[in-house]
């Protein structure tokens, strides 16, 4: 077996295992974020708040935590390891904004930080808002 064949073989067998591992890692890490947020949520419920307010507090706390962890540089390691488990929850949104802010700070407050803040989060806002708009229009036309 020459080197090329060997590489082909490795390519054939290794990714599927990695994919399974990645998927499990994403499940567990996403689940842990869900678990942590439930704990925060329940604590706020104990303070006589309704579920909407508690949810808002939970989201703000998660955003603050991921923003701080991004600043420290700890979050990049987590993203590398757990990928979608961190990116899909709201933590990913906050992470993308904070990291864009920090990375572009050196180019100045306006041309660097300000104009690049939504570099990654912008697409989420754009496509979320636009698809919501289109769907509302469809709903209104067909259901009145």
């Amino acid at each position: 077996m020459n080197k090329k064949e060997y590489e082909k073989l490795v390519k054939k067998y290794s990714p599927s295992e990695d994919k399974l591992k990645n998927a499990l890692m994403a499940f567990v890490s996403g689940g842990i974020i869900g678990l942590i947020s439930t704990i925060i949520y329940v604590i706020f419920l104990k303070f006589d708040m309704d579920s909407v307010t508690s949810t808002a507090y939970t989201i703000v706390i998660l955003i603050l935590a991921s923003s701080i962890l991004t600043g420290i540089g700890f979050f990049d390691n987590l993203v590398e390891k757990f990928k979608c488990g961190i990116i899909i929850p709201i933590t990913g949104f906050s992470h993308s904004m904070t990291s864009c802010a920090i990375d572009n700070k050196k180019d100045g407050f306006i041309t660097g930080l300000g104009s690049n803040l939504f570099k990654l989060a912008g697409s989420v806002l754009l496509y979320g808002t636009f698809s919501a708009f289109i769907l509302v229009v469809i709903k209104v036309i067909f259901n009145g």
Binding site: N22, A23, L24, M25, A26, F27, V28, S29, G30, G31, I32, I33, G34, L35, S37, T38, K83, C84, G85, I87, I88, P89
Partner: peptide
């Protein structure tokens, strides 16, 4: 845990 985990896993 299950819900957030599953959605993250689908993304992954």
């Amino acid at each position: 845990f299950i819900l957030v985990g599953l959605i993250s896993m689908i993304g992954q």
